[in-house]
Structure formats: C-alpha cells, structure tokens
Design a protein around this nucleic acid. Structure first.
Lengths: 220, 220
DNA sequence: TATAAATGTGACCTTTAGGTCACATGACTT
DNA sequence: AAGTCATGTGACCTAAAGGTCACATTTATA
C-alpha cells in the first residue's frame, strides 16, 4: 500500500504519477520498469517517490487493486442481458463486457496483462491471490453448469477451468494486440466484426474444431 | 551467429558454456540474463565471451537454431503411428512427441518457452520467423483437414490456427510446470495419467466443453 | 629456436539501477 | 514572528549491467 503522503496529494498530481507508472509498466513490465524514469516522466523527485511508495511493486499492487475495484463496479453497472441464462451465454457476456472495459483503459490493461501473464508465471508467488479468485469463480460457474447439464461432465472441473481461463487470456491478449492498431479501440471492440470474432472463438471453445452436424451460424 | 573462435573450441568447453547460458535463460529470461553470471558459471573470462559471441542474444538465437534442428531430427526418428491418419490424431501425436522431446531437455525448454512466450510478445520483432514457420505449418494442416471434412469449415483457417497454437502453447507450459515437480520428468510425461490428461485437453479442443451426445471415453 | 597468429584475461570504462539522507521549502499553529 | 511539522529535493551511495582493451599466454609455422 502507498503511504499516507501519497493519498494527501491533490488528485491531479496523483493521476500524473499513476499515469507515468502505467506507461512505464506497459512499456517495460514490472521487472524492467525503472523508478528513475517514472520519476522523470511524472515530474517529481526521487525522494518524493520513496515518500509515496515502498518501491515500484507497491505502485503496481496499488494499480491492481484500483483497477480491480473499478472493474467490479463496471460489471455491476452493466447487468447481464437476462437472468438464469445459459452458462456459455453468460461467459460470452462476461468476456465481451471485460473487453469493453479493457478498451477503455488500454495502456493500463496492457501493463497489467503484461506483468500478470508475462512475468507472474515466473517471479515469486506474488499476485497469486488474484489468480485464485478468478479460478475459484470459474470453478463455481462450471460446477453449476455441469449440474444444469450444459457442460460435459466427463471433462473434469479443473480441466474446464483451465480451458476457460486459457481462452479468456488468449482472447484478451488478441483483442489488446489487435485493438492497439486502431485509433479508437473502444469503437473497434464494439464493432460487429470484432464481436463476431469473439463469438466465433467462444463457439470453438464450446463446440470444438471437429466438424459435426451442428455448426456455427453467423449473427449470434 | 557465434564467431569462428567458438566453433574452434573443444566440444566439452562449448557444452559447459552453453549449459551455463541455458541455466541463466531458464532462470532469468533473455532480458534479465546476465553475461557476467554466464561467464562466472562457465569458468571463462569476460573477454573470451565476447570473442565467442556478439552478445547474449547471439547465444540465444544459436541455442534456438540448435534445438530446432535437434527437434526436427527427433521427429524424423519417431515415425507417426500410421500414414494418412486423421488430422486430430496426427496433431495429438505431434503434441505428445513434442512433450517427450521437451522432457528430455527440460531446462532448455524452459529457457526457450520463457523467452519466446514471455518476452517475445513484447520485445522487438525477433524470433518472428520461427513463429511464422509453425503458423504456416499449422495453416497447411488445417486447410487439408477442412478439405477432408475433418475440421469445421465455418471456423476459418486463421482462427483454427490460433486455436491450435494456443493449445499447443498451453499444454507445453502446463506439462513443463507440472513436470518440473517430478524428479524423472520423462517418466512422468510417459505415464498413463499424464498421457490421458493430454488426451482430455485435446478432446476438448476437438469437441468443445458443451455437453452433446458423443462424449470422451477414457483410454484413448 | 624464433616469429607470427590465435586465444585468453581481468582491470577498467560508462551507464543505470534501487535506495538514502541532510537539507530546503512551504503551511499551519500559537 | 517564532516554531513545528509535513512535504519536496537532488546529490550521493553501492551494486550490477554491458562492453572494451592492453597485455599475457598458448599454439602453429618457418
């Protein structure tokens, strides 16, 4: 957690610092981020930085907690299209809503996914609780879906979590990378073309690559 | 490419250096690898290192080319179970053979996957040609599979490549992480339990998570 | 054995990293 | 106005990075 001095700062100054940190993490990841550069780009002195934060990891975990809270609020604001819906439909809604949120904060998302997906795997056990949260949420969802007869019960829960988690990350990464090429990322994400791409990806997760009788029909 | 002086070295010395480099890359990735440590751990002097290689990236690309060649030879040695087989069966064989190869060089695999999957996404366009090779190979395979009526044609080729590539990477990573926990990794990979896990994952890739009539039957 | 070529070496260079600290500045209290 | 406390600052510290180079040592050639 940042120190009290940081929270006493005027909002504008806080934002300047946070923005500089986000840029730094997005560009270099956590391990290679430089406090010197953050300090330069936010126009504060080295001494001040260490009066606000313990170190750069402190900044990052703070970022993480802020964005987590904001994301939860965003999801609360956007109600799912209908209650008691099909699990796959619900998952699709979650992915799409998540992508919309991400496109509103592209650099922040880039910074976080980069650190969590890129470095998190190797360095320490940090940020493990966040992963466990999502894993547990998925696990709950899948157990329920099996009971409802929507998910193949021969695919055990742990494996299904891995599948959904893998896809969730793959889609995020894909959307982020492609979306960065467009000037208005949010508009691009909301476009019919992009939405259909997501639909197709999730369709494959649902029904597989193998040709069977039932096939994907364009237009949700 | 390493300089001629490196190739003039006795094999044993070359191996010592390469092993130290592999350890370093596996532990720290490419960006954070230290030439100083490589030099220390291989018992050569700083000056010698730069007489052998341009820099650490030169070492890594060399590693990559060596392991690529060895992997190709390994695959040539192990003939696929039957010719003209089902595409999914062939893919399964490829994944399993690949995992077997990886388990023979676990640290090397760790070093390479770490750099390629972890850092390769962000830094420069390096190593892009290797990715393009696998992408193109997958693309060929899928086009053929669609013609044969094995892969759903409504899933376009590019998307199918992404699916297979994603799963290939996910399985590698999973096997590597889990396998590292066992003393005899190769034995663990060859075990019935692990093989069935891979089968199940690929089954889900093939038929999806959604419950349908046809279900996975244990025992290949 | 004398000479030339190839190889080996570690002290040394610059740059940058994270982090500290004595001191300067401003703001609020009495 | 005097004093107190929070905040701001950049020179400075050590460690480590990548890289170079004059010189020592070994090997091959005549």
């Amino acid at each position: 957690m940042p120190k009290q001095t940081f929270f006493n700062l005027p909002q504008e100054k806080r934002e300047t610092i946070i923005n500089a940190a986000v840029e730094e993490f997005a560009e270099y990841g956590l391990e290679n981020a430089s406090t010197n550069r953050i300090v330069e780009n936010s126009g504060i002195s080295k001494g001040s930085f260490y009066q606000y934060f313990e170190d750069k990891e402190d900044v990052f975990t703070y970022l993480l907690s802020v964005i987590e809270r904001e994301k939860m609020e965003y999801f609360k604001g956007k109600h799912p299209p209908s209650s008691n819906m099909d699990t796959f439909e619900y998952f699709r809604w979650m992915i799409k809503t998540g992508m919309e949120f991400n496109s509103a904060y592209p650099r922040m998302t880039q910074a976080i996914t980069r650190v969590l997906l890129g470095e998190g795997r190797y360095y320490g056990r940090n940020f493990g609780d966040l992963r466990q949260k999502t894993t547990q949420a998925l696990s709950m969802m899948i157990k329920q879906a099996i009971q409802r007869g929507e998910v193949d019960p021969s695919v055990d829960v742990e494996l299904a979590v891995m599948v959904m988690d893998t896809w969730s990350n793959a889609i995020s990464t894909y959307i982020l990378n492609e979306g960065m090429k467009h000037k208005d990322m949010m508009k691009w994400v909301r476009s019919a073309k992009t939405q259909e791409k997501i639909d197709k990806l999730l369709y494959v997760m649902e029904y597989g690559l193998r040709k069977t009788e039932s096939q994907f029909v364009s237009g949700s």
